[in-house]
Design a protein around this nucleic acid. Structure first.
Lengths: 190, 190
DNA sequence: CTCCGACAAACGAACGTTCGTTTGCTATGC
DNA sequence: GCATAGCAAACGAACGTTCGTTTGTCGGAG
């Protein structure tokens, strides 16, 4: 019946994702674990620390995914496809952390928020770099703006969390290829 | 020095958009208007009513935009382009209401939330219908899934509110045509 | 012209509740 | 026997809201 710090953080992710940071109280979180709100202070310093932990976890998942996707060589379109598949995997495998990362980062105190914004920029940079490669080697159209195209791709991907239900008629690999196909058609030469 | 109900709602939109519903207190809102929190109750029934008003306003802007975009005839690609331009206009002309509509609707009480969800579906339907027309008349590829494509387009559009700065190097009509071009390239035959 | 009643807007204090957090104690398990 | 997880109780602050009162404005009656 004993709980770990890990349990608390993952329950916090669940509630932050569902009700938002300000919509979740320490007593709510305690109830989720079968504890009193005050008992959580045996495991963590406070509420804000929980938000930092959850959001940072989200950021790490994304960065790890990008690193893995870009580890191997290949044509730009293939590297981009791996980035897309990885991003989608992170969203669907870690919905709570991702939702919190995407929607609740604004409730971070300035110092941690800045770190997260920087991490987000770094991640976005991975998409931009691949798009730039594709333009450079002629596989993507020359008038593709890597920054804008990166934003568009990430917009589609991040929104998935808002509508996709895993048990629907479209499984995740099918969804990934639908997205990748549509994106590539929008980018490629000819 | 006297305030109208209108003032209160639009200030509420501003704060809900910036700090979220749960992150905004009636005293915050009073301060924004140079009033005490309690004074707001001369103008509105309570906090939840303000959220309803702001969110409904957002929904109405979108629906009016879709109605206007589809009032005139034309090829599917042109009708879609008008939908996109309209949506973008709503986002940029009513940022506070739109942000609140997109992010804070979950804090609505069930009755009003259901109405908003229904309105959102109706609006999304406008996009799906045009996409279906385009597939039917052969201007869009036959394997385009109208539902999925509609979601993708709206994903790109709704995310604009999260990154676009009006005073940047890209003006809004340029942005609209960048989006419309990219979307059309992803859809059209050939 | 002035006074008066009506009304809306805002105040300031207080309501009961919930918030995040702290403290002191008590079990349980190594 | 000692650290640790949890409880019970409490803290001050903030929450949304209510209340009685004050303020300012303004149209008509005298």
């Amino acid at each position: 019946m004993s709980h770990s710090r890990e349990d608390v953080i993952s329950a916090a992710g669940r509630l932050f994702a569902r009700d938002g940071y300000h919509g979740t109280s320490m007593r709510d979180l305690g109830r989720e674990l079968g504890l009193l709100g005050s008992s959580l202070y045996s495991h963590v310093e406070g509420k804000q620390e929980l938000l930092v932990a959850v959001v940072e976890r989200g950021a790490e998942f994304f960065q790890a995914s990008a690193d893995a996707a870009l580890a191997a060589e290949g044509p730009a379109s293939e590297r981009l496809r791996r980035l897309i598949e990885g991003h989608l995997g992170v969203i669907l495998d870690h919905r709570d952390e991702v939702r919190t990362y995407l929607n609740e980062a604004r409730s971070l105190e300035p110092a941690s928020r800045e770190r997260i914004v920087a991490a987000r920029d770094r991640y976005e940079q991975a998409f931009r770099t691949v798009l730039k490669e594709g333009v450079a080697d002629g596989s993507f159209r020359a008038d593709v703006d890597p920054k804008l195209a990166g934003i568009f791709v990430l917009s589609i991907l991040n929104a998935v969390d808002r509508w996709y239900e895993e048990d629907g008629r479209l499984d995740r690999t099918a969804l990934a290829s639908r997205i990748a196909d549509m994106v590539e058609r929008g980018l490629r030469t000819g």
